[in-house]
């Protein structure tokens, strides 16, 4: 029971911090409206997609990734004020702590996703229901390793390095994952496919071409989940000293 009370507490706390969610949820929505709204029904040259749907899908991966990684900045802040050490000397289990952090990150990501879908619908992006569902399902799965990454990074950085670290990480993952522009060949393509963000972007692209992940995608996501979850556990356990 105790763990659930902590999860509820984390959710309440997160959604009270307006500045936090305005930036992490608002920015992808704002970008979407700025890019797509003026030309939402126009077909992007060389593709079969309108601006409205293409950018909804691209920003879905970008927005949800930001929500996941923003956990790291929050954890860095909690460590700074000594809250993490206070929790360490309570009976709260590691499992309950991780559950609260992951569920809070997912709540943010899903809110971000919903707002993008609604914006997309307003701007005329239409898809068959099963495409919406499959895309959403795979996005949720692709976010698992990124949830672990958020926690891992949060226990390694300090608040003054949180900005550049998070900004850099999101840009790196988004760029090589193919969020900003499609990567179709060469070294970047090879490297990109090894990243979890690549498959997050691919999950979004299901909406466009209707193809799910190949086996390779599942293996990559699973492997990153194992690596980053282990890393997050390690970082949390060693993080007992004053920051």
């Amino acid at each position: 029971m105790s763990g659930l009370a902590y999860t509820r507490f984390e959710l309440v706390r997160t959604f009270r911090n307006r500045r936090f969610y305005i930036f992490s949820i608002g920015i992808p929505i704002l970008l979407y409206w700025v890019i797509a709204a003026p030309q939402h029904n126009k077909i992007i040259t060389g593709t079969a997609f309108t601006y409205g749907i293409y950018y909804m899908v691209s920003l879905a991966s970008f927005g949800t990734m930001m929500s996941m990684l923003s956990t790291g900045a929050r954890i860095a802040g909690e460590r700074q004020v000594g809250w993490t050490r206070q929790l360490r000397i309570s009976p709260l289990s590691v499992r309950a702590y991780f559950r609260a952090k992951i569920l809070t990150a997912y709540a943010m990501a899903l809110l971000s996703l919903c707002l993008l879908y609604i914006s997309g619908a307003i701007l005329g992006a239409s898809l068959p229901a099963e495409r919406w569902l499959e895309m959403t399902g795979l996005i949720v799965i692709a976010l698992v390793p990124l949830a672990a990454l958020g926690i891992l990074v949060g226990h390694l950085i300090t608040t003054d390095s949180a900005g550049p670290a998070m900004g850099g990480l999101v840009t790196f993952l988004a760029l090589l994952g193919g969020t900003y522009f499609p990567i179709t060949g060469g070294v970047l393509h090879t490297i990109g496919q090894l990243l979890p963000s690549w498959w997050l972007v691919q999950a979004g692209h299901i909406a466009l071409h209707g193809r799910g992940w190949p086996v390779r995608g599942w293996i990559t996501v699973l492997a990153w989940t194992a690596i980053l979850a282990t890393g997050a556990g390690w970082a949390y356990r060693r993080d007992t000293t004053k920051v």
Partner: peptide, 18 residues
């Protein structure tokens, strides 16, 4: 600690917000 036998006020530190 896990058995809930210890309560502590650590040196310095603030409270979490919100």
């Amino acid at each position: 600690v896990d058995a809930g036998l210890i309560g502590a006020m650590l040196q310095s530190g603030a409270l979490i917000r919100d």
